[in-house]
């Protein structure tokens, strides 16, 4: 068991998870106090304890603000964990599901089910999962059959993402779209009006994320040392990589179903998390992503004269971060 002892979550990792959990809680709670409807501290605590001073307060705090922030936290967690997985599995710091077409594939799948079959959120989820897995399969095919790697694999993914976006756009022109907001949800990603209904799906995703970390955390660490070494240590390399890639697609799809293809969180969060915690633990990475998305959403809602879709904020800052990564890195491995 000696080689495994260093593979367990270290004390530093656990400390960082605790810190990030507290931060996430702070963001969650503070989200209740933004906005034009003022809530006092006492009112807030009373509402949370189930003794709301007014139905209005209860509606704003619980139904609107807290559940929206919780959706943002969970969706960010899923996106970030998915990004961390794809970046590790494809061995490329730029290979996050939003860049390589997995989220846009999910968005296309979900949009197709809703627009063509008139499905509910549940059936849209299956469409999104199917779309994401389809995109992942195409990428796996590119790796296995065409032996693509490195930046060329990323560029193929970018083409895939562009195709999925164009097809989603096409679907949107073909059916009556009741509002621009609906279209926005499938193209840019937005948290407008998200709440408890989506939270169920997201919590299922968070559960999957925790299980993945517990079951595959050690395998992931060993895979980082290289396929040969990992195989030597008893990891079934091909199978593990395949399973983990499917999990990554699944997590991304669940996030997309609840708030659309929000860009760049899955790219940025793993890097920030690694810079902070010096580990690639999925939980700390997920928490970082959740906090990022929740804060971005607060900025998107309240920093401007009109509330923006959160995807706009994440694209601007995340895209800037992507550029910075490109400039900083002399070479992209692969």
């Amino acid at each position: 068991m000696t080689p495994y002892s260093s593979m367990r979550p270290s004390r530093g990792e656990i400390r960082w998870i605790a810190i990030l959990l507290v931060l996430a809680l702070v963001v969650l709670v503070s989200s209740a106090f933004f906005g034009s409807y003022r809530v006092s501290l006492a009112d807030f605590f009373n509402t949370v304890r189930g003794q709301a001073p007014a139905p209005m307060t209860e509606f704003f705090v619980l139904e609107r603000r807290l559940s929206r922030a919780a959706v943002a936290l969970c969706a960010g967690m899923l996106l970030a964990a998915s990004g961390s997985l794809t970046q590790q599995l494809l061995r490329n710091p730029l290979a996050s599901p939003d860049i390589i077409g997995i989220t846009t594939g999910a968005s296309f799948g979900g949009a197709m089910v809703i627009l063509l079959l008139g499905g509910s959120l549940a059936s849209a989820s299956f469409g999104a999962v199917a779309g994401a897995i389809m995109a992942a399969l195409i990428l796996i095919g590119a790796v296995k059959v065409l032996r693509l790697s490195g930046s060329r694999l990323i560029l193929l993914g970018v083409g895939l993402a562009a195709l999925a976006t164009a097809l989603t756009n096409f679907l949107l022109t073909q059916v009556f779209v009741p509002s621009a907001e609906v279209a926005q949800t499938w193209l840019v990603g937005s948290l407008q009006g998200r709440g408890k209904e989506e939270l169920v799906w997201l919590l299922a995703g968070v559960a999957i994320l925790l299980i993945t970390q517990i079951m595959f955390g050690i395998d992931l660490k060993m895979l980082q040392m290289g396929d040969d070494l990992a195989a030597g240590l008893g990891v079934q390399v091909t199978r593990t990589r395949l399973v983990l890639l499917f999990i990554a697609a699944l997590l991304a799809a669940l996030a997309v179903v609840s708030c659309g293809p929000i860009g760049f969180i899955s790219l940025v969060a793993p890097h920030i998390s690694f810079a902070l915690t010096k580990s690639r633990n999925l939980i700390s990475c997920g928490l970082t992503g959740g906090i990022l998305l929740a804060v971005s959403d607060l900025v998107a809602q309240y920093a401007f004269s009109v509330s923006l879709p959160v995807g706009v904020i994440t694209v601007v800052f995340g895209g800037g971060f992507f550029l910075w990564l490109l400039f900083r890195q002399r070479r992209i491995h692969g």
Partner: peptide
Amino acid sequence: VRITLCGIAFSAVLAGITQGIVLT
């Protein structure tokens, strides 16, 4: 490929800013 990725990211940022202006 790198300059292409750079352009794509740049394009995304510009589009995001445009969208921010348009929506506000």
